[in-house]
Nucleic acid binder design. Structure first.
Length: 347
DNA sequence: AATGCGGGGCG
DNA sequence: CGCCCAGCATT
């Protein structure tokens, strides 16, 4: 029915470590009913165990059974959720309890698929409940397990990518034993939470470090591959390098706010047509010629500026508060067309 | 203060 | 697939 490993060295080492170092007296571990495990899993989705414990105790006192929860008012449920945050999950918990009353004879369903159909329960949480409450050998894949699998098997690529995530599910399931299913589930989460941490994992103490591919390759602090930075949009602009017949260069000052605020720069246009029209309006005789492309990257976009060159400009009448003629010597010195803070010399 | 993360849900 | 939620840990 499910693909599982034989009782591997991995599982033996992990469970031996868990027996010695794992947590065994969490409130939901004693009398681990499906309902208690479910509530704990939802609470643990968002908060560390130490914080969850008092909330869990109070919640169980107020709503000791699934039926109690289903019959409570939403306000009462949310009041007991108060302080945990993520209230949508409290609402989902309440709604799911009512659905269990209507659709599953007042019980949580056993099958992972039916669990997953309840609000607030995705694939990993469904399997966490099925494994810990019903002993089904179905793997979880939360952030902890993803990290462990990425490192153990040297998986590269961002786990949010579908292909990577599919592979991680396969690996997680392949490690799942058929015995001590609940302990194994708790153990692999504990490993990720306490030793195989996101930063500076404690490989020395790891019970499976001898079979960790990431450690062997020195990649243990580079895996899992972080989410790619959002691809930045590229903005195309046209810059005019206008030289007059004395070799002087026209600069304009950018608006005080915004990108390169107040800096002096070649005149910038949103399109090549704009540039050509404006150039003609200045009385230029020759057609601007593509000189080079400037590439700049900012935090929020890439800029490609096409520099268009006009030489021998004769009209010479351009002068307003935001434009300057720069002497040939200055222009060379500043290494234009990079924007500059000040223009050294008044015309 | 800023950044990155993570489980589920939705379009 | 990408985006969103909204709170936390980490730096």
């Amino acid at each position: 029915m499910y693909t599982t490993a034989q009782y591997s060295f991995f599982v033996k080492n992990l469970l031996d470590w868990f027996d010695q170092h794992g947590r065994h007296s969490l409130p939901w571990q004693k009398s681990p009913t499906p309902y208690r495990i479910w509530v704990s899993e939802i609470m643990l989705q968002q908060t560390q165990a130490a914080t969850v414990i008092p909330y869990f105790e109070r919640f169980m006192e107020a709503f000791p059974k699934l039926q109690t929860l289903a019959e409570a008012t939403l306000d009462d449920v949310l009041a007991h959720w108060s302080g945990l945050g993520y209230y949508a999950r409290g609402r989902n918990l309440h709604k799911a309890a009512q659905r269990c009353m209507q659709e599953h004879d007042g019980q949580l369903p056993v099958s992972p698929q039916q669990l997953q159909d309840l609000p607030g329960i995705g694939r990993s949480t469904a399997n966490a409940i099925a494994a810990q409450a019903f002993g089904l050998p179905v793997a979880i894949l939360d952030g902890n397990v993803k990290r462990v699998m990425c490192r153990l098997h040297g998986i590269e690529g961002w786990p949010g990518k579908a292909a990577v995530e599919r592979r991680l599910w396969e690996l997680a399931q392949a490690h799942m034993p058929t015995e001590r299913v609940a302990d194994y589930t708790q153990a692999i989460m504990d490993l990720g939470a306490t030793l195989c941490t996101r930063r500076r994992p404690d490989c020395q103490r790891c019970p499976v470090h001898h079979e960790c591919q990431a450690l062997a390759q020195g990649l243990h602090d580079q895996l899992p591959t972080p989410r790619p930075k959002k691809v930045l949009p590229t903005r195309k602009r046209w810059w005019l390098k206008l030289e007059d017949n004395a070799g002087r260069l026209l600069l304009t000052q950018r608006p005080a706010s915004g990108l390169w605020g107040g800096l002096w720069c070649l005149p910038e246009f949103d399109s090549e047509d704009d540039l050509l029209i404006q150039t003609m309006a200045l009385g230029c005789q020759s057609t601007p010629k593509a000189l080079t492309t400037i590439r700049h990257s900012f935090s929020h976009y890439h800029l490609h500026a096409e520099v268009m060159l006009v030489k021998g400009y004769q009209a010479g009448a351009i002068m307003d508060a935001s434009s300057r003629w720069l002497s040939p010597k200055q222009a060379t010195k500043l290494g234009l067309p990079t924007p500059v803070r000040t223009v050294l010399e008044r015309p």
